[in-house]
Amino acid sequence: HEITLHINGRRVKLRFRDEKAAEILKEAAKKGLDEEELKKLAEELWR
């Protein structure tokens, strides 16, 4: 699955395995994680 989040006016595509991962990524984006941090988090969730 993929999700596209808008971060600092940019579109960031993240891959994720399940809905739980999608929710975690959305929450992290709301908390203000930047693009690099979100990509790292997405990679961690993928494993």
Rank of each mutant, 00 (worst) to 15 (best):
L25K: 00
G32M: 07
K31P: 01
E43S: 06
K40L: 13
I7F: 04
G32Q: 05
A29M: 07
R47D: 14
R15F: 08
T4M: 09
L41C: 03
W46C: 03
K39S: 08
T4Q: 07
K20N: 11
E2Q: 06
R11M: 15
I3S: 01
A28M: 10
R11W: 14
G32W: 04
H1M: 13
L14S: 01
A21G: 11
E44K: 10
I3L: 15
R17V: 10
A29W: 13
R10D: 04
E2D: 07
A28H: 08
L25D: 00
E19I: 08
H1E: 08
K39L: 14
L14W: 01
L25E: 00
R17Y: 12
L5A: 02
V12G: 00
K40M: 13
G9C: 06
E19Q: 13
K30Y: 08
R15N: 05
R15Y: 09
D18K: 01
A29L: 09
A22K: 15
R15T: 04
L25C: 03
E27L: 09
E44F: 11
E35T: 09
E43L: 07
I24Q: 10
A22W: 08
R10P: 00
E19D: 12
R11N: 15
E44R: 08
E19H: 14
E43G: 05
L41Y: 04
L5Y: 01
A42L: 05
E44A: 09
E37T: 10
L5S: 00
F16A: 15
E35M: 09
E37D: 12
L14T: 02
V12S: 01
R10H: 13
H1A: 11
G9E: 04
A29N: 05
L41E: 01
W46K: 01
L25H: 00
E36S: 12
I24A: 10
L45P: 00
E19V: 08
E35A: 11
K30R: 13
A28P: 00
A21H: 15
G9N: 05
L14D: 00
D34L: 10
E44L: 13
R10L: 10
L33R: 06
D18S: 09
D34E: 11
I24T: 09
K20T: 10
V12E: 01
R17M: 15
L33Y: 13
A42H: 02
K31W: 08
L5M: 07
L14N: 00
E36G: 12
H1Y: 14
L38V: 09
E44T: 08
L33W: 14
W46V: 03
N8I: 02
I24M: 10
K13G: 03
G9Y: 00
D18L: 02
I3W: 01
G9Q: 03
N8P: 02
I7Q: 03
E23R: 09
K40C: 07
D18W: 03
R15M: 08
L41D: 00
R10Y: 03
I3K: 01
R17F: 12
T4F: 07
E23I: 13
L33P: 02
A29H: 13
L14V: 13
K20V: 12
V12Y: 02
R47N: 15
E44M: 10
V12P: 00
D34W: 06
F16P: 04
R10K: 15
K39R: 13
R15W: 06
H1K: 09
A28D: 01
A21V: 05
R47F: 14
L38Q: 01
D18Y: 05
H6M: 13
W46P: 01
K39Q: 11
T4K: 03
A28V: 04
K20Y: 12
E43K: 06
G32A: 05
I7V: 14
L38D: 00
L5T: 01
K40F: 12
A29Y: 11
E43N: 07
L38K: 00
R10T: 10
H1F: 15
E23K: 08
L38P: 00
E19M: 13
G9L: 01
A21F: 05
E2N: 06
K20C: 07
H6L: 11
K26M: 14
